[in-house]
Amino acid sequence: MPRQLLVTPDVASRTQIAAFASQLAQALARGTRLVQLRNRSLDADGYRALAESALALTHAAGAQLILNPPHDVADRWLDVTGGALAATVPQADGWHLTSERLMACDTRPAHWRLVSAACHDAAQLAQATRLGLDFVTLSPVLATTTHPDAPPLGWPAFTALAEQTSVPVFALGGMRAETLSTARNAGAYGIGAIRAFWPAA
């Protein structure tokens, strides 16, 4: 599994998908091989169009795509008891659970080769471990403009939490490409970021 996870920035409307695809293609050309398609603005049809565009690009580059749709879309597409809903879901490589959905799961979501989750504390990490997830993000490690009100963990607390799970942990929040060695020394498998890995418009 790659050591760097690109979390994509939000796409507010379907008219922005072409520009998004151009920037994603640049990120893939620079070596990105693991992408989380995060969105909180589009409806189901819009997110499906975004995912289909991203899938074509990531798979052509030999990269993997993890879906992280808006909450209402996830409610339609994913059954937290483990099955998939009837809606036609893009055939991505995996699914990313929010921390709230992670804690509501009784079993690992079915039909996905990779399942990841957002974790912020020991209880969430324990749940991810119990479900046998493939990796988690643990955040925020450092101060981040994406979530300015969230108090950062700092590296010592990150290390203490990461030691509590056997699941690979990606450090998220304030990460840059050059932070990878620091993160690895602190017990991370890799790092995740939006701004650090996303090309400028």
Rank of each mutant, 00 (worst) to 15 (best):
D93K: 01
A44M: 06
T145M: 05
R130F: 05
A49D: 08
A29G: 11
A177T: 04
S166T: 06
D134P: 02
R30K: 12
M1D: 11
L133R: 06
T179W: 14
T144A: 04
T144P: 02
E178T: 05
A27M: 04
V169F: 09
P69H: 02
T58F: 15
R113G: 10
G190T: 05
S53T: 14
T137G: 11
R3I: 04
I194L: 04
L102P: 10
W112P: 02
A126L: 00
N39S: 00
L5G: 06
P90V: 15
L55T: 00
A74N: 12
T182C: 00
A157V: 11
T159E: 06
A200Q: 14
L57K: 07
D79L: 13
D72R: 07
T182P: 05
G62W: 13
D149H: 09
L138M: 00
M175C: 00
D10A: 05
P156N: 05
L34W: 07
L28T: 01
L102N: 09
Q164P: 15
H96A: 01
T32W: 10
T32N: 03
R76F: 14
F135Y: 14
R38G: 10
G192Q: 12
A21D: 15
R108Y: 07
D75Y: 07
V115C: 09
D79N: 12
T107K: 08
W198M: 15
W77E: 05
T8D: 12
A193H: 10
R38L: 00
D149Y: 06
W112S: 00
L102M: 13
W112N: 04
A150V: 03
H147G: 14
A104P: 05
F20S: 07
A150P: 09
A188G: 07
A49T: 08
P109Q: 08
V89H: 08
A74Y: 06
S22G: 02
Q26P: 15
V115T: 13
P2W: 02
F20E: 03
C119E: 14
T58D: 09
Q23E: 03
R40S: 10
D106E: 14
T98S: 03
P151M: 11
T15K: 05
E163K: 03
L161I: 09
A19N: 10
I17P: 04
A92C: 03
W198A: 13
G173S: 09
A118S: 13
V80N: 14
N185K: 07
R33W: 01
R48G: 14
G94P: 02
R30E: 08
R33P: 02
Q124Y: 11
T129H: 15
S166K: 07
L24F: 15
T58W: 10
A186R: 01
M103I: 12
I17K: 13
S13V: 11
T165I: 00
W95H: 02
G82W: 04
G31K: 11
Q164F: 03
D134K: 05
I66Y: 15
L153I: 11
Q36N: 12
E52A: 05
A162Y: 13
D75G: 14
R176V: 06
L65Y: 07
W77M: 06
T107G: 12
Q127Y: 13
G82I: 10
L172S: 09
A87Q: 15
